[in-house]
Design a protein around this nucleic acid. Structure first.
Length: 282
DNA sequence: CTGGGGAAGGGGCCC
DNA sequence: CGGGCCCCTTCCCCA
């Protein structure tokens, strides 16, 4: 479904280069601390390091070691040492359930210019290393004095910690339809729309939480497909689906089963493989 | 069982 | 503060 149904004149710092989508994660960035090349691997691949991975002058722990005053990531097992709601419960019940944290660090929140996904990798690795089940490796707030254990995106820790909004303001907005809590009224209002679904489709009556979700849905009626693959000219109604499609033009299979080492092109395929019971071959 | 497309959900960021 | 747009993720279905 289209996440961006309107063609926008992108500001310079947000122009997505879809022509590089399939290559940018395979090429190397550089570590701002040691100037060594750093693989821009996604979290799942990074957490499932393979023997064939080329040695990296600066792997993640090194980056963290000499770079970061950074986010405190706790898996739920670590966090259990702190009083407050069971972070695992938060992980399983919230919108994070079953998801890997994702949002890349924004430049403004990443003064060290670390590759966008590193903090996420750290959180995932630490959690997995401690034996947390996949999907429970959510990062939780564990600042001193903060017992909220709120999960946050990879990019969120810095933002979460900087003003540490919910500690300073001591305000908490709770959804009237569910028990979710938010640190701002705006965030709560945003969430509330997922219950009230104020955007009904005039064609079929299906309701959506946001206008652009509705617009994307309308495309399913009109057949409009404004996003075209530069490689095969196939068109998509959803930019995210185009992005997923672009991976099919790459041979890289970034998601590897730890049980049988079989690699998959999509995280969902790996998850399905694992859920169906990985049976390593002879 | 795997690969891939379609559709949708939801939080974060910018203006 | 709200709207628009971003991104990632998940689920479903079909080949």
């Amino acid at each position: 479904m289209p996440r961006s149904f309107l063609v926008k004149t992108h500001s310079s710092h947000r122009v997505p280069n879809y022509g590089q989508l399939e290559t940018q994660r395979e090429t190397s960035g550089s570590c701002s601390a040691c100037s060594g090349p750093v693989p821009l691997a996604p979290p799942d691949k990074a957490s499932a390091s393979t023997p064939s991975d080329a040695p990296q002058p600066c792997d993640l722990p090194s980056v963290v070691t000499h770079a970061l005053p950074l986010p405190t990531f706790l898996c739920h097992e670590e966090a259990q040492g702190v009083s407050g709601p069971d972070p695992l419960e938060v992980s399983q019940a919230g919108p994070w359930a079953g998801r890997a944290p994702s949002t890349p660090l924004r430049d403004s929140l990443n003064p060290l210019n670390l590759p966008a996904r590193w903090p996420l990798v750290l959180g995932t690795d630490r959690a997995l290393a401690l034996g947390c089940p996949r999907g429970a490796e959510r990062a939780h707030c564990a600042l001193g004095g903060c017992h909220c254990h709120k999960p946050f995106h990879a990019g969120a820790p810095a933002r979460h910690q900087q003003p540490h909004h919910h500690l300073q303001a001591q305000r908490c907005f709770t959804c009237r339809y569910c028990d979710k809590e938010y640190g701002s009224l705006g965030a709560l209002k945003m969430h509330t729309r997922t219950h009230t679904l104020p955007c009904p489709c005039a064609v079929c009556g299906k309701a959506f939480s946001r206008p652009w979700l509705l617009q994307g849905h309308i495309r399913t009626h009109t057949g409009e497909k404004p996003y075209t693959c530069p490689h095969c000219s196939r068109a998509f109604a959803d930019r995210s689906n185009l992005r997923a499609h672009l991976h099919t033009h790459s041979d890289a299979k970034r998601y590897q089963c730890k049980g049988c080492s079989k690699a998959f092109s999509r995280a969902a395929l790996l998850a399905r493989h694992e859920d169906s019971g990985c049976r390593p071959g002879p």
